[in-house]
Amino acid sequence: MEYVNPEGLRLDGRRPMEMRQLRAEIGVLSRADGSASFEMGNTKVIAAVYGPREVQNRSQQMNDQALVRCEYSMANFSTGDRRRKTKADRRSTEISLVIHQTMEACILTHLMPRSQIDIYVQVLQADGGTRSACINAATLALADAGIPMRDLVTSCSAGYLNSTPLLDLNYLEDSAGGADVTVGILPKLDKVTLLQMDAKLPMDIFENVMQLAVEGCKAVESHIREILLENAKTLGNRRGV
């Protein structure tokens, strides 16, 4: 199948290096300590953060750092064909673990000993790149909850189809069978905290694709920062002195 047509446009009309539209909102849930929704094109996820709060299972309590837990789930209505999924299938367990590791790396857990932080992310609409969207949403929700972090983690994916590197794959491109590289970075520190790839790529092409994904992460970062700054300013202004 042709994923990039001769005019250089992709299936959804984007250029190879073009991201989908980003949209983020903070404070979408009232009961959570922090919450956010994040959209990348048709992919939409919602994240809720509870904590730091008392550890539910005493035996897991750590005296020098906080316990971070993460749960990823997909709504039954999130994909084209509605199907009832078991609660913790192999795929969501893996993504939970990935998100957990990425977020734990940036949270300053040693500042909140003997407590627990719960991150719940749910996919409302799936159209490729859900794990990137989940990480971005979780970052926003953590920042909203006032949890100290080293840096804002952002994530973006990139792929390689029709011998062209493509940024931010949608579902069709994702399921094409080409390589899919998901990268998570700490933009300020310029460090990679997450790197996943299915399929294989030659070394030189991989470097290009990864560079593209990192550029995508930085674009996501600038968007997220704008949203956060605006949110912080309104909170401060409303509160008054």
Binding site: M149, P187, K188, T234, G236, N237, G240
Partner: peptide, 16 residues
């Protein structure tokens, strides 16, 4: 907003 931005200008920061 206009009232409070006079008082605390640019003191707002975000993570990192």
């Amino acid at each position: 907003e206009s009232l409070s931005s006079k008082v605390n200008s640019n003191a707002t920061v975000i993570v990192a």
